[in-house]
């Protein structure tokens, strides 16, 4: 009984952590290039919707997932293009993308299906293990790519500053744009996986996961391993709050719904604690 519970908690942790990790590694690419990826949340949302729409239309889960990643990439192209090409403030461009995402999804949904509510896509629904395996391998590949490839190395140099990059003959702007695209595609795929998990798109289904992924980038010390670990921790939080909710979820006023707030509050606390420790370490050393 207890063992069963633990296993299901473990699986549920992995299922929550995997999309976070992929999106966070995308965010890491942007951070490593010296930019900020506020738009992870937006990319996840358009990824989820596009995956459901394409999955519904084609009847293919694979096509849905690919389309989700592509949609995330398109959104991040707006942000990266504005920031790198037009020298716009990356923060404002990212916010605009986050405002754009739910709007454009709703408009598209209204135009195509006459509803702005839930969009069922049974064809997209995939097994839990399939999704975890897909996301985990994508995360691993991305982590490896960032830390070991020639591209990843140059990306990190771009993140050290334009002058240093220029001295090494590296065009930092191009790498920064590429990093935004990677972030968009990764979080688009992560969003698609959310939709695949339940076989439907539900408005607001990302509910701040893109932001938690962004926090994981900072908490993980900007290293792939650390970022993945932070995501596992947040995944555990989500799993725990779901589990406890399952125990007491009979009455509407039982407070089970309140538990959904815990991951966000704890994430904020973790960030504060980590930053505090970092500051103390610096002051001491």
């Amino acid at each position: 009984m207890i063992l069963e519970r633990l296993t299901s908690l473990g699986i549920s942790t992995l299922a929550s952590a995997a999309p976070l990790a992929l999106a966070a590694l995308g965010g890491l690419a942007a951070a490593a290039s010296g930019s900020l990826s506020i738009a992870l949340e937006g990319s996840m949302l358009v990824g989820a919707f596009t995956a459901a729409a394409v999955g519904h239309a084609t009847g293919s889960a694979a096509a849905g997932m690919a389309a989700g990643a592509f949609a995330g990439l398109l959104l991040s192209l707006l942000v990266g293009g504005a920031a790198v090409g037009l020298k716009a403030d990356v923060f404002v461009a990212g916010l605009a993308a986050n405002i754009l995402a739910p709007g454009i999804v709703s408009v598209a949904s209204q135009a195509a299906y006459g509803t702005k509510g839930v969009l069922a896509a049974e064809a997209l629904r995939s097994g839990q293990w399939e999704i975890i395996a897909l996301l985990a391998s994508a995360s691993l590949a991305l982590a490896l790519f960032l830390s070991r490839s020639v591209f990843g190395l140059r990306l990190r140099v771009a993140g050290e500053g334009d002058e240093i990059a220029a001295a090494a003959g590296i065009r930092s702007g191009a790498y920064r744009l590429a990093a935004h695209l990677i972030a968009g595609a990764a979080s688009g795929l992560a969003g698609a996986a959310l939709a695949a998990g339940i076989g439907a798109y539900v408005p607001g289904m990302t509910s701040g996961r893109g932001w938690i992924a962004l926090v994981a980038v900072f908490l993980g010390g900007r290293r792939p391993g650390g970022v993945a670990l932070a995501c596992l921790l947040f995944g555990l939080l989500f799993a725990l709050s779901n589990l406890v909710q399952g125990f007491g979820g009979q009455g509407a006023s039982s407070g089970a719904e309140l538990l959904q707030a815990v991951p966000y509050a704890v994430t904020a606390l973790a960030l504060v604690a980590w930053k505090g420790a970092e500051r103390r370490r610096k002051a001491g050393g």
Binding site: R148, S149, V150, L153, V157, E160, I164, A167, A168, I170
Partner: peptide, 29 residues
């Protein structure tokens, strides 16, 4: 230069290799 233009987060060898990195499998350093 008078003030260093090395990439702080990289090793000495990586800094020296930048721009003409020796590759393995075509993709990796």
């Amino acid at each position: 230069p008078q003030s260093s233009l090395l990439a702080e987060g990289l090793t000495v060898a990586e800094n020296l290799a930048l721009g003409r990195e020796p590759r393995s499998l075509g993709l990796f350093v």
